[in-house]
């Protein structure tokens, strides 16, 4: 996935002279996750550069660059560190078009590694997507495969609205099925890892059908797509799995169509439960598919605690938690 993201940035830097990549350690060094490796050498220091350690500054100057007419792609090193930039994101980037009646826009894409499963402890594991989905004016994207990461990132950079682009770092190097005690397989053996060369984009607001099925609908994104898929496979559950890919705007049609067919729905995310994005999904399914539902919507999420270090695998919504929810939903 790292190469796919690097490739997307490379293509957009090449295609559009307005694209600017910046953030802490993204320049000469190429990023702490190598996502921007080689880009400064190729495009020069005024297109790809290092910034001071100031998330408020990074997002703030990106808003100003967007107002000028550039298309900045700032990186926040970890999603856990996006909070100092929240005022600039929520009060400014998200509202610029609205409050100026379209005179000024913020066509920026904030990339940030997110999610747990890497012993990152409290401040290298968080999934703060619900903070952003709650803000009108922001789009929120979470890819789950290298193919999607490239196509969605290109679409996000081309989009004229501010996009929060969360990259699940647990699956940067390979898919993760939730079995932390098994060795991680690299992406190269995975069917979704085939990334076409050159330019392509995947429209924002469209879910991906991971697997068609009849027994229930699983709504997931990021790392949890792979975990949920593995658990359903092992348990022999004929699940229909939707990878949402974009949380705002949401592919409501795909969700309705699937739940109306299966009559059951499970929502899975790593983030904490209370007021998490799963609550929005469960409410939407309840409102729009009520008469098709044969069981209450199940939410499988992280617990309502800060992300722990030593007890990571007790916290993470892994195979056991998902398995229990499946049993409950299917009445086993």
């Amino acid at each position: 996935m790292i190469e796919a993201i690097n490739d997307a940035l490379d293509i957009m830097l090449e295609r559009d002279p307005d694209v600017i990549v910046m953030g802490e350690d993204v320049g000469y060094f190429g990023g702490v996750f190598r996502c921007t490796a080689g880009l400064q050498e190729k495009y020069g220091k005024t297109r790809v550069f290092d910034t001071p350690i100031s998330e408020c500054g990074i997002i703030g100057v990106a808003v100003g660059m967007g107002a000028y007419g550039l298309r900045p792609v700032p990186e926040i090193q970890f999603a856990d560190y996006i909070y100092p930039g929240l005022d600039q994101l929520i009060s400014e980037a998200a509202r610029l078009r609205y409050r100026s009646a379209g005179e000024f826009i913020a066509p920026m894409t904030v990339r940030s590694p997110f999610g747990g499963g890497i012993f990152g402890g409290q401040t290298h594991s968080q999934s703060p997507e619900a903070i952003f989905t709650h803000v009108s004016g922001l789009k929120t994207v979470v890819p789950s495969t290298p193919h999607d990461a490239k196509g969605l990132l290109i679409a996000a950079i081309e989009d004229n609205d501010p996009v929060i682009f969360f990259e699940p770092k647990r699956i940067y190097n390979g898919p993760f099925d939730g079995y932390y005690d098994h060795p991680t397989k690299p992406w190269k053996d995975h069917p979704d890892a085939k990334v076409p060369e050159g330019y392509y984009s995947i429209p924002l607001g469209k879910a991906r059908m991971v697997r068609e099925g009849q027994a229930l609908t699983v709504l997931a994104y990021g790392t949890m797509v792979h975990v949920a898929e593995a658990v359903c496979r092992e348990k022999g559950v004929d699940a229909e799995i939707l990878d949402l890919r974009t949380l705002v705007p949401l592919d409501i049609e795909a969700i309705e169509k699937s739940v109306e067919k299966t009559g059951r729905c499970m929502v899975v995310h790593e983030a904490t439960r209370t007021s998490g994005f799963g609550a929005e999904l469960a409410a939407l399914v309840q409102e729009r598919c009520f008469y098709h539902l044969e069981a209450p919507v199940e939410r499988v999420t992280g617990f309502d605690t800060p992300y722990p270090h030593s007890l990571e695998w007790a916290y993470f919504p892994g195979p056991v938690r998902i398995g229990e929810a499946l049993d409950k939903l299917l009445g086993a």
């Binding site: 100003g64 400014e92 409050r99 100026s100």
Partner: peptide, 23 residues
């Protein structure tokens, strides 16, 4: 530039605009 109710947010934005002009 569009005025915001949130104080001082325009300061780094002005810097970003100036950086863009220099770029």
């Amino acid at each position: 530039f569009t005025i915001s109710g949130n104080l001082a947010t325009q300061v780094p934005q002005a810097v970003g605009w100036a950086m863009a002009s220099a770029i």
